[in-house]
Write a protein that binds this DNA or RNA. Structure first.
Length: 284
DNA sequence: CATTTCACCTGGTGGC
DNA sequence: TGCCACCAGGTGAAAT
């Protein structure tokens, strides 16, 4: 489900519900591969802490956690400092949901965090490609993405990411160490809006093409965030609500359908092991 | 070093 | 109905 716009939507929704809420109960399923930090240590770390805020970095949801002993926030107390982080990557099919404890537990629910407000935060992930990590900031560095943020990157920095590289531009867009947050949907959609074929060598794009791509990517991501992300199959936000950006897709999963700009059938190829969709006329 | 392929998982869809 | 092939929002390790 989750690329930058979906992760941003979920992080905002979770933040709205759990800010200032305390974790009073932790249940983790027995799927060791899900937990980058061993489940026992993760459960111990989470228990009793307060959510200070929840935000997105790349495709990661970062929960800033306060110490176990923390007075309720008041006007007279300075903003508490985060001393731990819970980092959630949703993989392909992961969801974070805020529910009541009585809500039916969906299949493939792997985490349930009971909160002092009476609500519950749940992590559900059928394919189990997601990853959960706990960081004690007294012992380890705060989480930082390896790649640049596509929403705020400058022209110069964007162009320098691709200089001297021979790999296809679509493969470069998907590489999280260059840009963080772009996945298969938004790579295909931004290349369509920039008029660039996915197989073009990234190092051979002109300055003008790179700038078109940077702006197309930013616009596509911003509009997708405004529409709550793309619900291709079962993606929903933290409140269980679907997004609407799938209605705006021009190429993604539109193989054989007429191009919205020129009516030519959209083509599908395999690139970097991923289904890749483009218009053979609009994209050169 | 840069780049490509594959394994990791479950579930949905469509053909026979 | 069953069985099978193929496809799906991602990524890190192994191979080239």
């Amino acid at each position: 489900m989750p690329e930058l716009p979906e992760v941003e939507t979920i992080a905002r929704g979770v933040n709205k519900w759990v800010r200032d809420d305390r974790i009073v109960d932790v249940w983790l399923a027995n799927h060791p591969a899900l937990f980058k930090t061993p489940a026992t240590r993760q459960a111990k770390g989470l228990e009793g802490r307060v959510f200070l805020s929840v935000h997105r970095t790349g495709k990661h949801i970062v929960c800033e956690l306060g110490p176990v002993l923390l007075a309720p926030r008041s006007k007279h107390v300075a903003q508490p400092v985060s001393d731990a982080q819970w980092i959630v990557h949703l993989g392909m099919t992961g969801r974070l949901l805020v529910t009541t404890p009585e809500a039916p537990v969906a299949a493939h629910t792997h985490v349930r965090l009971g909160l002092s407000s009476g609500r519950e935060l749940r992590f559900v992930d059928p394919r189990r490609f997601g990853r959960l990590e706990f960081r004690d900031l007294a012992r380890s560095e705060a989480f930082a993405a390896s790649g640049a943020e596509p929403l705020t990157i400058s022209s110069e920095e964007f162009a320098s990411l691709f200089r001297g590289r021979r790999l296809p531009i679509k493969a470069a867009l998907l590489n999280q160490t260059l840009l963080s947050g772009v996945g298969n949907i938004y790579a295909d959609e931004s290349l369509f809006h920039a008029g660039i074929r996915p197989r073009r060598s990234s190092g051979r794009l002109t300055k003008a093409e790179l700038e078109r791509l940077r702006l197309a990517l930013r616009q596509v991501l911003e509009q997708a965030i405004r529409l709550g992300g793309s619900s291709v199959s079962d993606y929903v936000d933290a409140d269980g609500v679907r997004g609407f950006f799938q209605l705006e897709h021009c190429v993604y999963l539109r193989t054989g359908l007429p191009c919205r700009r020129c009516q030519t059938p959209i083509r599908r190829i395999l690139l970097a092991g991923r289904g890749t969709h483009f218009c053979p006329i609009c994209q050169r």
